[in-house]
Design a protein around this nucleic acid. Structure first.
Length: 501
RNA sequence: GGGUGACUGGCGCAAUGGUAGCGCAUCGGACUCUUAAUCCGCUGGUUCUGGGUUCGAGUCCCAGGUCACCCA
């Protein structure tokens, strides 16, 4: 039967229900119980026993096993499933106002329909906890067939494009998004307990700043100007620190006009946290808490498994400088190089490629780190003390020339968080942002213009501050064991199936 | 950006270059303890799109689309 035939069969049933005066799109159903709660509460009910308590539940019919005068449905609500025991005699005695109530149930319902039922609880002789239904109402008639009840929906493309179908037939998918909500709630609660407040900053901006990334451009009609979607929340949150807030954060959507992969979605959720009067050492402590507290709450353990790899989140996490890590993995001591050429020659000899155009020792160090070290950092590791060349918003290191007080957190070989003692010297900041603007003028699409108002704010004076940004999607991937960011995002961006042109 | 692979009824899958088939669901029938219910019967397809090779293409070739994985 074709898709259209299946649908028109269901539409016929809609018409039949309407002709019978049974609205196939009901208004409400008083739900008193949920499946999982009943399964747990009556786990000890013996086979063949019934309890004289009336329950009213609602959910989607997932399976139908129909006999002549008896039927069993599997009903799925948000919490799980429970069987319905549908006895012709009992239903027709309890629903005298509807003629042939049992026949309608058999003929006019399908797997996929939303059903509300009332009845009492019983455990069948075969041991299945069931609602012995006395009354039912078809709450919503479904027009489209569900995927195969046994094999389910496995086509990943369809799972992402039609997440609602994925959620209906793959209940474990629901768990990821439930956990995601618990993780973000735990983070917000923890920060609130530490007197951080969340302040929302603009998504539409006249300058995209705070990170090296290509922005999305949109257009405001009445102002007749292009606007950028934010690529970071950094510069506005720092303005709030200038304004006198000492502890602020924002968890929200960021947009970067870049590639799509198992680790990148064009829109993603970040949290940025700023704390006045602290430095990057303080923030490493807080970062550990911001991951371990949700992990412990949501998973109940700090010993987690990611794609088959055992990860130990027990604090404290290893802290090691970028220089030491590169030395450990390549034998190269970048502190010893006195010229770019010397560093480049040594790096090439160590097997680091694609560095011909690079014109600074710090960037060579970073290349060596990314190529030789990054993916080896499986257990949580804070990499510290980055080159100033790749850290335009970070404060110079108090004792190491050429470096800044910055850390990045790596887990399972992925950058998960990034923090630094914030640069508070407005003159130094202007120099660095202007250098970046020069790169933009020279054609670097990831470089951005100078945000003059941000520099003005810094000139009013920002207290010593530490800031940190963390990718929430990647944290969810880690804690929910998702191989792809698309499994951690309810509705990931996909190309349209049928392009216009 | 490069490479590899996948794409066939609603869903899950078959088919040496030779009649497009199976399971589930649907539809009709039987059935008061099933749970992938069972039994009987019947439907349902522009094989992702467009070209090409061939007597003949789901299958081979070219181009395009979407997705997945790997690499940069």
């Amino acid at each position: 039967m074709s898709s259209e035939d299946l649908r028109s069969t269901r539409l016929d049933k809609v018409a039949q229900l309407q002709a019978l005066g049974l609205n196939p799109y009901a208004y409400r159903w008083e739900v008193t119980h949920h499946a999982a709660e009943l399964q747990q509460q009556y786990a000890e009910l013996p086979n063949g026993e019934e309890v004289e308590i009336e329950v009213a539940i609602a959910g989607r019919i997932m399976a139908r096993r129909v006999f002549g005068k008896l039927a069993f449905f599997t009903l799925q609500d948000e919490t799980g499933t429970i069987q319905l025991y549908l006895d012709k005699g009992k239903i027709e005695a309890s629903m005298p106002e509807v003629e042939n109530a049992f026949a309608h149930l058999k003929q006019l319902t399908d797997a996929g329909d939303i059903l509300g039922v009332k009845g009492n609880l019983r455990r069948t002789d075969k041991g299945e906890l069931s609602v012995g239904v006395s009354q039912y109402q078809i709450l919503t008639k479904s027009l489209l067939p569900l995927p195969d009840k046994w094999h389910g929906l496995t086509d990943v493309e369809k799972r992402y494009r039609q997440r609602y179908v994925d959620l209906i037939v793959n209940p474990e998918v629901q768990q990821t998004f439930r956990r995601r909500a618990l993780i973000t709630a735990a983070i917000r609660r923890l920060l609130s307990e530490k007197n951080f407040i969340e302040i929302e900053t603009p998504v539409l901006q006249t300058e995209a700043g705070g990170a090296d990334a290509r922005p999305f451009i949109t257009h405001h009609n009445t102002l007749e100007m292009d606007l950028y979607l934010r690529i970071a929340t950094e510069l506005h949150l720092k303005r709030l620190i200038v304004g006198g807030f000492e502890r602020v954060f924002e968890m929200g959507r960021i947009f970067r006009n870049e590639g799509i992969s198992t680790r990148h979605n064009p829109e993603f959720t970040s949290i940025e946290v700023y704390q006045a009067y602290g430095d990057y050492l303080d923030m490493m402590d807080l970062t550990e808490e911001l991951i371990t507290v949700p992990a412990q709450e949501v998973l109940g353990t700090l010993q987690i498994s990611y794609q088959g790899e055992a990860i130990d989140l027990t604090r404290p996490w290893r802290r090691i400088t970028m220089h030491d890590l590169v030395k450990e993995h390549t034998g190269l001591d970048f502190t010893q190089f006195t010229s770019v050429e010397e560093a480049k020659t040594a790096a090439k000899a160590a097997g680091i490629h694609g560095i011909d155009e690079i014109q600074s020792i710090g960037k060579l160090l970073n290349e060596a780190f990314e190529q030789k070290v990054e993916t080896t950092l499986i257990q949580p590791t804070f990499v510290t003390d980055y080159p100033v060349e790749i850290s335009p918003l970070a404060k110079p290191h108090r004792s190491k020339p050429g470096l800044v007080e910055r850390f990045e957190l790596f887990i399972v070989g992925r950058e998960t968080a990034n923090g630094f003692s914030e640069l508070t010297d407005p003159i130094d900041q202007r120099d660095r942002l202007e250098a970046q603007a020069a790169r933009k003028a020279a054609g670097d699409l990831e470089a951005n213009s100078v945000d003059e108002d941000f520099l003005t704010a810094l000139e009013y004076g920002m207290p010593p501050t530490v800031g940190m940004g963390m990718g929430i999607d990647r944290l969810v991937m880690l804690l929910c064991d998702c191989a792809s960011i698309r499994d951690a995002v309810a509705f990931p961006l996909l190309k349209p199936e049928t392009p216009e042109s």
